[in-house]
Design a protein around this nucleic acid. Structure first.
Length: 477
RNA sequence: GCGCCCUUCGUCUAUCGGUUAGGACGACAGCCUUUCACGUUGUAAAGACGGGUUCGACUCCCGUAGGGCGCACCA
C-alpha cells in the first residue's frame, strides 16, 4: 500500500487516576481504526500538569488499556518530557509575528472576565497587548506568549462525525501558548506533539471540539497539515447527564471488579455511538474489519448496565471452559476475598471447577456471580445453609433426603446421567415429584436454593463429599 | 451570556425522500423445567414541537423547546 498513506492515530489521556470509561471507548475507536487500516495507534500521556500527574496514575491507564486488550505502537510518549520543544515552537510563533508577549497579570485577566460577565459580553481576552508597543511593557512582569488568533473570518473543522463545523473567529480569543513560567499550555503541546508524532487522524471526545478550532489555527500558523478530525459524542449516565462519579463506575478497573469480561466491554463500548447496521454481538476481529469513521453517530449515548450485563452473560456462556476459568482466576484478585480463593485452587480444585463450568457459566452474567455460584465447591462440611436452603430442609425435606441418600449410596456408577436415572426411577416408584427430592438435595449439597443441575453437582462433588453433605443434613434433627 | 453540537420505542440503534419505521437490551405473557438461568414463542413500545420545500418527508431547510459540550497562565 504505497499509494495510501499510513494511518497513525493516537490515544492521549491525561493521567487522572484511572482509565475513564469514555476514554476507554475513545482508545477502542482509535485502536480499531488504526488496526483496520494497517496503521498505528500511538499513546501519549498528557502529563503537562505535573501537580495532577503521578506515576501511579499513568500505571492505572496502562493497566486499564492492557486489561482491555488495547495495545499501542512504540513507547508511550510523555507530553511533559517534550516541553522544550513546545516552548521552542511558541518562540517560533513569536518570531514570525504569529504570537506576542502579553503582560497582563492574572488579576487583570480576572477583572476583565468579571467585567465582561457583568456587561453580558462574551468572556474573552480583549487583545490589550496584541498590537501594543512592547516598549510599554511594565518592568518586573514576566509575560506570557499569546497566539495571535485571526479576528476575521471563520475556522472550519471538517469533522468526520460532526460534519463541517464552522466557528466564527471573533469568538476565539488569543490563547496563551506559553505561560509566564515558560511552560507550554495544552493547546500548543497537543498540536506540536500530534504534528511531530505524525498523527494523521485524531479521534477524541466532542468536548475537544472548540479546542479543535484553536488547534487548527495553530496548525495553519505553523504551516503544518491539519490532521483528520473525528469528535465522538460523549457517554452519558442513565439519567442523561454527563457521566460522573455520581453514576458510580468511571474507571475501567471498576468494570473489571464488577466481573465484566474485556471482550464484552469492548463489544458494548463499540456499540455506544457507533454501529454497523443491526450488528449487536461481534468479535473484536469483526469490529476491526467493520470499523469506519462514518459509522460514528453524533448524539450522546446513555450508559446502560442492563445491556452490558446481558452482553457479558453472552460472552461468559460462549467462552470455553478453560479460557473462562483463566479469566476468572485473573479476575479474583480484584474482588474481596478473591486472593484467598486463588490460593485454594490447586490441581484438584481446578479440575472440579472445569467440570462444573458448563453448568455454572449458563447462569452467571458476571464473574462476580460466577464467584458466588462456585462457592459450594469451596465449602467445608458441615455446610452453613442460607435461609432458603433451611426452609427446604423441613421435616418433609429431611425425610426426602434420607430416602434419596439410600438411592445414591446404592448407585455404583457416580455420573450425572446414572444418578439422574436412579433418582428419577425412585421418584416414579414412590409417586413423588422429582422436585421434592431435588430441592432438598440442592440445599444439602450447596447450602443454597439455586444451583446448576443437581445431578451435575452430585458428580462434580464426588461420591464421598456428596453423600457426606447429604448425611450431615439428615442427621441434624 | 456567547459559540458550537444533538433530538427515532424506557435504553442502544437501523433507515441515508416513497418501509406495515427494522433489530437488540429491558418490560410483560406463554412454552421448556429439579431450582436459578439458558433457550424459545409472542405482546406492548418511537420519529420533541411548529412551519416550510416536495407528487411524497423520520430523512432536506427555518424556527421553537429540551439536552450536551466549550468559553483558565486545566488537560
Amino acid at each position: 500500500m504505497s499509494s495510501a498513506e499510513l494511518i497513525v492515530t493516537r490515544f492521549a489521556p491525561s493521567p487522572t487516576g484511572y482509565l475513564h470509561i469514555g476514554g476507554a471507548r475513545t482508545a477502542l475507536f482509535n485502536w480499531a481504526y488504526a488496526k483496520g487500516k494497517q496503521g498505528k495507534m500511538l499513546l501519549r500521556i498528557e502529563d503537562t500538569d505535573l501537580e495532577r500527574s503521578n506515576p501511579a496514575a499513568v500505571d492505572a491507564i496502562l493497566d486499564g488499556l492492557a486489561w482491555l486488550g488495547l495495545n499501542w505502537d512504540g513507547e508511550a510518549v510523555s507530553q511533559h518530557a517534550r516541553q522544550q520543544r513546545h516552548a521552542a515552537v511558541a518562540h517560533e510563533l513569536l518570531n514570525s509575528g504569529k504570537a506576542y508577549y502579553c503582560y497582563c497579570s492574572p488579576e487583570e485577566l480576572t477583572a476583565m472576565r468579571e467585567k465582561a460577565q457583568v456587561e453580558k459580553r462574551p468572556v474573552r481576552y480583549d487583545g490589550t497587548w496584541r498590537d501594543r508597543d512592547p516598549n510599554l511593557a511594565p518592568t518586573g512582569v514576566k509575560p506570557v506568549i499569546r497566539f495571535k488568533s485571526p479576528q476575521e473570518g471563520e475556522t472550519v473543522i471538517n469533522d468526520h462525525a460532526q460534519g463541517r463545523v464552522i466557528i466564527p473567529n471573533k469568538d476565539l480569543d488569543d490563547l496563551i501558548v506559553l505561560r509566564s513560567d515558560g511552560n507550554p499550555t495544552y493547546n500548543l503541546s497537543v498540536v506540536v506533539d500530534d504534528h511531530d508524532m505524525g498523527i494523521t487522524d485524531i479521534i477524541r471526545g466532542v468536548d475537544h471540539l472548540t479546542n479543535a478550532a484553536r488547534q487548527t489555527q495553530v496548525y495553519l500558523a505553523m504551516g503544518w497539515r491539519v490532521p483528520n478530525m473525528t469528535h465522538v459524542p460523549l457517554i452519558h449516565g442513565p439519567d442523561g447527564a454527563k457521566l460522573s462519579k455520581r453514576h458510580g463506575a468511571l474507571g475501567v478497573e471498576a468494570y473489571r471488579a464488577m466481573g465484566y469480561l474485556p471482550a464484552a466491554l469492548r463489544n458494548y463500548l463499540a456499540r455506544l455511538g457507533w454501529s454497523h447496521g443491526d450488528e449487536e454481538i461481534f468479535s473484536t476481529q469483526q469490529l476491526v474489519e467493520w470499523f469506519s469513521l462514518d459509522g460514528i453517530n453524533n448524539s450522546p449515548a446513555r450508559f446502560d448496565f442492563a445491556k452490558l450485563e446481558n452482553l457479558n452473560g453472552h460472552y461468559i456462556r460462549h467462552t470455553s471452559d478453560d479460557d473462562l476459568l483463566n479469566e476468572f482466576i485473573r479476575f479474583l484478585p480484584f474482588v474481596a476475598g478473591g486472593t484467598e480463593l486463588v490460593g485454594r485452587i490447586d490441581a484438584v480444585m481446578r479440575s472440579k471447577l472445569l467440570k462444573a463450568m458448563p453448568g455454572l457459566k449458563e447462569r452467571a452474567k458476571t464473574l462476580v456471580e460466577l464467584k458466588a455460584a462456585v462457592a459450594y465447591l469451596f465449602s467445608h462440611r458441615p455446610l452453613t445453609l442460607d435461609e432458603k436452603a433451611k426452609a427446604l430442609l423441613d421435616d418433609e425435606g429431611k425425610a426426602a433426603l434420607a430416602s434419596v441418600h439410600a438411592v445414591l449410596a446404592g448407585s455404583n456408577d457416580w455420573t450425572a446421567q446414572a444418578l439422574e436415572t436412579a433418582v428419577k426411577a425412585h421418584a416414579e416408584g414412590t409417586g413423588i415429584k422429582l422436585g421434592k427430592f431435588a430441592q432438598p438435595l440442592r440445599a444439602a449439597l450447596t447450602g443454597t436454593a439455586t444451583s446448576p443441575g443437581i445431578f451435575d453437582v452430585l458428580e462434580v462433588l464426588g461420591r464421598d463429599e456428596a453423600l457426606g453433605r447429604v448425611a450431615d443434613q439428615m442427621s441434624q434433627l
